[in-house]
Write a protein that binds this DNA or RNA. Structure first.
Lengths: 340, 340
DNA sequence: GGGGCCTTTTGTAACGTTCCATTTTGGAAT
DNA sequence: ATTCCAAAATGGAACGTTACAAAAGGCCCC
């Protein structure tokens, strides 16, 4: 009867005996239309199984209901948590999410940004690999509102949600110092991302205020399980192990723990290991991992809220937010024992 | 100069000295247009920084470049792997993905399906919670091509990609039988999803062909880490533990291992545990988990390929595919020792 | 030089909405 | 009754693109 076609606003109008414009009003400004007609139109919508075309709406109104989310590394569970936070907030407000993973590749980052542009997303949440992409001398150059996650910009050029990893790193190191460790290695690659550098800075701050006689060293390693394994192998070749390790991320801790346990190094008896992230299962490892909890899910939520605030009111001065991590002391760290 | 507006196909046409239709041809059917004009248009596109409006294209052509992906449970890393597989294939063909998580809620499933409808996605890949949603007496009722992941339908009503979990369950149980276990518990909830039921069926098949004298029992538990912890607690209240456990998913194994180790039960010395899934970090647990490897990433890839095949040629008889899992024997299982 | 035919280009009408200016409606006030 | 006014409803144009039919251009052959 309707020719196999999807019903349009015109079909609904005919069915309800009103004009197309009224149907549009029912959809967008229900308070403008009298209860009687409103009901009639809604009935017609039901009856015809009408679903508005988002493309047509978007084209005509200029407003899109889509938001782009650009992540850095799909393999790291932390990003899944962030995405969840974003998703949970945005679906409530009826936004649709397009998610992309740049995999730390500038190539892929570009691809997704142009997808976002084609779709004219209403806003973008992204975890920057290369922050300069979005700024030009501290000025934002994106045509749509942008919120950065897990990053900060000089002079707040872009509103962002980040985590105070300096404080986090400091608390991790302080914990080890309090336990009596004086021989500590940090595993990770500070050059890989600012938040990693921050952690290291925090660690150093604790060391500097911790007095003399502390041996500290950074062992560079990729941010992955495999990186942890390799770093552990490197350390095992030495005459002596440190008494404690701080891993830049939990995945590194995981790999390192496995390697050490494999060769009979007891954790935490012979070696304390402290992670950073607190992935969902980090508390379930053997031993349960002492680590710095990063509120990834919350970060996603806040980023989404920040973005919708800016979209709804472009002039709103939304300040960047800095979330506080917390040390979760579990069983992979303890007082240094006698060396092997 | 262009009034702050995004340039349109008309602006490009003016710049290049051709008609808008030619610009469209350059974009969609480059072979139709002569090299000289083609170059001129491409230059103009570059110069004006023109990006086509996906909404307008979609509205006019009726073809959308969007595909909907509906997942079941964002917290389970396996789904992340599937999503990755789908994404990797689809972005290559320039599809945009809208990802939704139903969280096993029929409510949210509905929400996302209507989002997909509003956007007129070109196709849907989904992991069904309630398969009947998409079929009506074995007939697909979706207006767009659909591919199911991790599920099968009677008479192939919907093309699907699935994993032969009966074989997987069988191989896991056979492994335990070969080791000499005669007292085995399966932890999980077969009613939760078909693939879980399949695993159990496979386990039972191995038992049936394994001769007499085998004690076997199913302990019901939610499909989560917490579920594993609880199930372990239940088992610990008994007079005697089984000699081996098969967990319906790795997360359950993870929770159970933690609980058992916590109270001093040695794994695998006193109790063998076999998982199912092989999450990225399962091989890094302590002990590295013996588990059935499910090719989640591949499943995502194949689903995406199946879907694009159907979209490109609606008459193509794309047969459902069944992937084969493989047993990864690691260190959480061994011969039953003397009981405690 | 003209006719036929294939290739390239173009003008114009959609696609399904929402915006906006205008008309109609229905009371309240005179 | 008539006038006035706000509220409600409408008609028609526009959003940026592609489809389609029709026009123009090129080429070859007679």
């Amino acid at each position: 009867m309707n020719n196999g076609r999807r019903p349009t606003v015109r079909d609904v109008a005919r069915e309800a005996g009103v004009s197309p414009a009224t149907v549009s009003n029912v959809l967008n400004y229900p308070h403008r239309v009298k209860p009687a007609k409103l009901a009639a139109v809604q009935d017609a919508i039901q009856k015809l199984d009408y679903v508005p075309s988002e493309s047509a709406r978007h084209l005509r109104s200029g407003r899109s209901h889509t938001i782009g989310l650009l992540l850095l590394d799909a393999w790291n569970p932390s990003f899944g948590d962030m995405a969840r936070g974003v998703e949970d907030v945005l679906t409530q407000d009826n936004w649709t999410l397009i998610i992309g993973n740049s995999d730390r590749s500038v190539e892929r980052e570009k691809t997704y940004l142009s997808v976002f542009e084609e779709r004219q997303v209403a806003g973008i949440i992204f975890v920057p690999k290369d922050p300069s992409k979005f700024t030009n001398g501290n000025v934002l150059v994106s045509p749509v509102p942008v919120v950065a996650m897990d990053a900060t910009f000089p002079q707040d050029a872009i509103p962002s949600v980040s985590i105070d990893d300096v404080a986090g790193g400091e608390s991790a190191m302080q914990h080890l110092l309090d336990l009596g460790h004086r021989d500590v290695v940090f595993i990770g690659d500070p050059a890989e991302a600012d938040p990693i550098q921050d952690r290291l800075d925090g660690v150093k701050r604790a060391i500097n205020s911790g007095g003399a006689g502390i041996n500290f060293e950074v062992v560079k390693s990729p941010l992955s399980i495999e990186g942890g394994v390799q770093a552990a192998e490197g350390l095992l070749k030495r005459k002596e192990l440190p008494t404690a390790i701080i891993a830049a991320i939990d995945l590194i801790a995981l790999g390192a723990i496995q390697k050490f346990q494999n060769v009979g190094v007891k954790i935490p008896e012979q070696l304390s290991i402290c992670g950073y992230d607190d992935m969902s299962f980090s508390s379930r490892l053997a031993p349960p991992l002492t680590t710095v909890h990063r509120p990834h899910y919350d970060m996603g939520r806040v980023a989404a809220q920040l973005l919708t605030a800016v979209i709804n009111d472009p002039d709103s001065q939304t300040a960047s937010q800095r979330l506080v991590p917390s040390l979760a002391i579990r069983s992979s760290t303890r007082k240094p024992g006698s060396r092997g």
